[in-house]
């Protein structure tokens, strides 16, 4: 998904300062982006209140009710242990969003700092950091995540780290690009003149001003992080079976695809709709944050 970074606008500078209201206003003009935003908000709500919303605990087995097709008792049917699929999907939303956002958080923090430092100081620091990023970029992201996940072992936290680290170069590049273009601007000069420290300048002035492309990349990044994580779980390198991660659910149900397709249908649909929503939102945000690209 690295093509997104290429498509992301290089710089928008102060425009993002006009505030959330402006962006939301522009966003509202795109029904697809609004759909994405609302879907993600709903999903976040579901994830936070999973304990209240889910009709059953996700691990609750009921072997008398295995493989049931959707009914009034089990809205989306049950899996091979008679566990309620809807409940598992709801708890799965929690896991997927966690993985998506925390992985991007990791990538953003590490990548952002590296990119900012590289762009701000330039010279050999820039060279060193960016060559390292080149190294990471020359291994496709999925493969990198697999290699990291394999060495860390399975588990939720390791999955986040693997997916996060694999995405670091994308953010490093964007932030560096932004910083390079902002570095020489007057208000930075001014800040330097009044004796602000480098760290303060980077954190207070430069990063906030390169927010627009970062937000777009992050939104799309959450999508690809969720997708990557599900893929890793699917091949058994992600989350451990008792937990209802969507990719793991899909993988667990594939053996029964002929008799009980609902075991694979719903988790797949959940992944797809979430990614779709994030992609719509990301596209919408790009247009909203950067009027130059708007046609």
């Amino acid at each position: 998904m690295s093509d997104y970074s290429a498509a992301a606008p290089a710089v928008t500078g102060r425009k993002s300062r006009r505030g959330l209201a402006e962006v939301l206003f522009r966003l509202r003009k795109s029904p697809l982006a609004m759909f994405g935003l609302i879907f993600i908000l709903c999903l976040a709500f579901v994830a936070v209140f999973a304990g209240v919303l889910a009709p059953y605990p996700y691990q609750k087995q009921n072997l008398m009710h295995s493989y049931e097709t959707p009914s009034r008792q089990f809205w989306l049917g049950t899996d091979e242990f008679g566990r309620d699929i809807l409940s598992r999907l709801i708890y799965g939303a929690r896991i997927s969003l966690q993985v998506g956002f925390i992985a991007v958080g990791i990538a953003l923090f590490v990548g952002g700092m590296l990119g900012a430092v590289a762009g701000y100081y330039g010279g050999w620091i820039d060279n060193g950091i960016m060559r390292l990023m080149d190294v990471l970029l020359s291994v496709p992201q999925t493969l990198l995540a697999i290699a990291i996940a394999a060495s860390l072992g399975p588990g939720l936290f390791n999955l986040m780290i693997a997916v996060g680290i694999a995405a670091v170069p994308n953010y490093a590049r964007i932030v560096r690009g932004s910083v390079l273009s902002i570095r020489e601007m007057e208000f930075i000069e001014a800040a330097r003149a009044v004796g602000s420290s480098d760290l303060r300048i980077i954190l207070k002035h430069i990063l906030p001003n390169s927010m627009a492309p970062i937000i777009v990349q992050s939104t799309l990044g959450v999508a690809s992080a969720i997708l990557n994580a599900a893929g890793l779980s699917f091949i058994g390198l992600g989350i451990q079976p008792p937990y209802p991660e969507w990719g793991a659910m899909l993988s667990g149900g594939r053996q029964y695809i002929r008799d009980y397709a609902h075991l694979t249908l719903y988790p797949g649909l959940a992944i797809m709709l979430t990614i779709l929503a994030l992609n719509f939102l990301g596209d919408g945000l790009r247009d909203a944050l950067d009027p130059k690209l708007k046609r």
Partner: peptide, 15 residues
């Protein structure tokens, strides 16, 4: 196209 971008390949494969 957006759906295609969002479709996990392992799910599409199973379908």
């Amino acid at each position: 196209a957006m759906i295609g971008l969002s479709m996990p390949v392992f799910w599409l494969g199973l379908l």
